[in-house]
Design a binder for these strands. Sequence first.
DNA 1: GCGGCTGATGTAACCGGTTTCATGCCGTCC
DNA 2: GGACGGCATGAAACCGGTTACATCAGCCGC
Lengths: 329, 329
Amino acid sequence: MATIREVARYCDVSVATVSRVFNTPEIVSPETRQRIFDAAAEIGYLPNESARTLATKKSNMVGLIWDTDHRRPGWRHPFLQEILVTLKTALSAHGLHLLMLSHREPYLQAARRHNLDGVVIIDNGSQDPAVLALADAEIPCVALDLRRTGPTCTYVTSDNTGGATLAVQHLIDRGHRRIASITGPLQTAPAAERLTGFRAALAAAGLPIAADHMVESDFYLDGGHTAMLRLLASAPRPTAVFAAGDEMAIGAMRAARQAGLRIPDDIAIVGFDDIELAALVPPGLTTVAQDRAGFGTAAAEALVTMLQNAGQPPAPTVLPTTLIVRGST
Amino acid sequence: MATIREVARYCDVSVATVSRVFNTPEIVSPETRQRIFDAAAEIGYLPNESARTLATKKSNMVGLIWDTDHRRPGWRHPFLQEILVTLKTALSAHGLHLLMLSHREPYLQAARRHNLDGVVIIDNGSQDPAVLALADAEIPCVALDLRRTGPTCTYVTSDNTGGATLAVQHLIDRGHRRIASITGPLQTAPAAERLTGFRAALAAAGLPIAADHMVESDFYLDGGHTAMLRLLASAPRPTAVFAAGDEMAIGAMRAARQAGLRIPDDIAIVGFDDIELAALVPPGLTTVAQDRAGFGTAAAEALVTMLQNAGQPPAPTVLPTTLIVRGST
DNA sequence: GCGGCTGATGTAACCGGTTTCATGCCGTCC
DNA sequence: GGACGGCATGAAACCGGTTACATCAGCCGC
């Protein structure tokens, strides 16, 4: 690999000038600039990122944390792939790369060792202290689905409360009065917020909430199934169920069908997330869609803003949610 | 951030000794080692990775390339997430981090600039020249689902041919004689190999292949739907269909159902991949499962092998596939 | 008693960039 | 015609590590 000194020698200029050509080209004379530029292309010179990082203390890399909860190795984000793609695309437009951090080392430590410019956290509500330490440190970070702010920390999340309200309101509009809920793990922010929305909608309509019509589950298919069995055992039975995640909703649908109930006639079901499956499973799952692409782009924007003006972090982004009505209600 | 010189001064030793404590601890006397180690912990010293990389030319980072085809931004790998998780876990066990490369810059160039130790390629058959350049360069790389070898390049793939043979053999065993195929884009290796397996199974059974019973599609749901419509329009109609991907298979099932056909009585369908959906969509999709976790771990192992002994790259890994029989056949 | 070996540590060059500060040149203004 | 300002460039320190080589003490064998 050619070095900056070779280019300098080749062009009979100093290394400083070569460096300037690649960093502040406007301050070097057009002829010199062109000459150096051509020479660099000819001998295949590429600036060494490690050396640049060492000198500038900026690595142009941002850390990515997503599997923060080692207790649940199979944890799946409903649209992680979209987030990664959009995030990567948006960041690379600013010349930033994504470094996936492993939890074998404290995140903060890894971030410092690598001179990371910032960090993006995709949390699942595990309250991992290693993650929280990051949010409190000096390093710019933006959290997804984790409402955490700080002097260098902001977040992006969906309007979970509003979405849930929308869903439940829809059930009420359909004439339902006994509406149950299957929530996700309540220590996670999205689950808690969706429950809040559920409550708000019922309260606004003056409807009661039966204690045995609220069951906490785990966002997974089997969990939804089990939860539904419990709901079906209650008396009087709910006529509609709001499941705070589509996987759970689909599990619940199976349980209902196995119990001989027709959907939506005997029991209506609405989910949350609008996963691919929701449109495919008969009779189609009414659900609340999130702005999938919005997460990545908003996170990248927020991060870039923080990197440019080191002052206050930008305000949190709350992405809108929309109700998608299908056959299950 | 504390530097190595501060630790050295603090302990009244030379920086060389401190460096040795972190790299070759066995050659420094136990007392000194412990003293330095304690001091480092006390003043919060962390070795700067950029400086280490600069000096050693090893970055402990491996590049990850997956969206090689910019023409299909929404490209989805059926189990990208599993691959990422397992790959990351396996690599971090060796102290390696994963850097996601963007296609805004030639991959090879980015790899050199960052002193990447190696690269993992998740290809979708795009034949991207930037990817191929990587495989031909001096940098260790392992390709997934792309049969590419070289002096520093090996690959990991599923036994697509064998899996397809398994699937078609299964249809033949069920008594089918007119078996059609819906393939993926044939320029991708998995699609081509699955077609080979399809042909091999029919040939072994002495069955003919009708030209209008082989349609090329795109691995997506709608593509499978369209392909099935064409198959249903042929005469005589096939009694069974091998779709080279589950999404296509599910699209095909819908088309069949919409045409009033019963599955599996009127037409049998078998897919490939065993995506989550396969078990959920009634009556359950018979399919060929791949070793999802195997990709990541095998890739990591192959890469680490290449990093350790710089000689010949390890032989390619071909992961076994297994048939999973469900209601659709 | 001395040469030589071994093990622990220090010295200093080096990795490949960036950036401060100095220098020299030229045109301008009075 | 000389002071001055601005522009292009160069010299050299610096970023924070690694490592080849030198040094030195202590021990061994003869």
